[in-house]
């Protein structure tokens, strides 16, 4: 057996689908080839880890809810991913009302915030959107810069959805991943309602030298696009 055949049979070996003859030939090759042995060992560990990925238990009330009419949540605001992810909560107050009559300004009012991400790790970033009045059917648009992605949506550069903002704090949680270091960029959240809009810019910066020891992006004020 050569390395190419070994590679082709690796999945069958992992799934326990090799015949006795194939298995012996496969394992003989592993004994004689350090590279294939390391690859097989790594593959085996990854499969073992996948089988132990955590998942929440089913809510106890779910069987009871199944008898009720289907009522979907406002899923557009819920970008939550696996509960095992670290949670990084950075709250930026977005004051939508800067005039006495309108819920928010009609100029290009820009609010700037900084967030801290960790390279290649999804983290929930939560923003508080504070509104002085209830706004039904507000249109939210999120623009993601190169190097930052929503977990589970790698190619999505822009998200647009409609949501109702309640009076007071509304929380928007985004699972963000920085997939590049040396980032000096921003993502933009635009909120439109009744012909007016508000823009929130979130600056993101990476530090190459902190990678791989932590790769935590610095949170700094005063970001300029």
């Amino acid at each position: 057996m050569n390395c190419d055949i070994c590679d082709n049979q690796l999945d069958n070996w992992l799934d326990g689908e090799l015949s006795a003859v194939q298995l012996k030939a496969f394992e003989d090759h592993l004994d004689s080839c350090a590279r294939c042995q390391a690859e097989a060992k790594r593959a085996q560990r990854i499969i073992a880890a996948l089988s132990q990925l955590s998942a929440p238990k089913m809510p106890e009330a779910l069987p009871i809810l199944l008898g009720a009419p289907i009522k979907k949540r406002s899923g557009a605001l819920q970008f939550g991913i696996a509960a095992s992810l670290l949670c990084l909560a950075i709250t930026g107050a977005l004051f939508l009302d800067r005039s006495s009559n309108a819920p928010f300004s009609d100029d290009d009012g820009v609010k700037q915030q900084w967030v801290s991400l960790t390279f290649a790790e999804a983290k929930d970033v939560t923003f508080a959107l504070s509104s002085l009045s209830t706004m039904n059917d507000a249109v939210l648009t999120l623009e993601l810069p190169d190097g930052v992605q929503l977990a589970g949506y790698p190619d999505q550069r822009e998200l647009r959805w409609t949501a109702s903002l309640q009076k007071g704090d509304n929380r928007l949680t985004l699972p963000l991943i920085a997939n590049k270091d040396n980032l000096n960029t921003e993502l933009v959240l635009r909120i439109e309602h009744s012909g007016k809009h508000q823009i929130m810019r979130i600056g993101i910066q990476a530090d190459t030298h902190s990678y791989p020891a932590g790769a935590t992006l610095r949170a700094t004020r005063g970001f300029t696009a």
Binding site: A55, M58, P59, L62, L66, I70, G80, A83
Partner: peptide, 18 residues
């Protein structure tokens, strides 16, 4: 559990199961 694995969040998992 399968719904959670696929959708990645509890809210969508419950909607799917419903």
């Amino acid at each position: 559990r399968m719904a959670f694995r696929l959708s990645g969040n509890q809210a969508d998992s419950e909607d799917l199961i419903q």
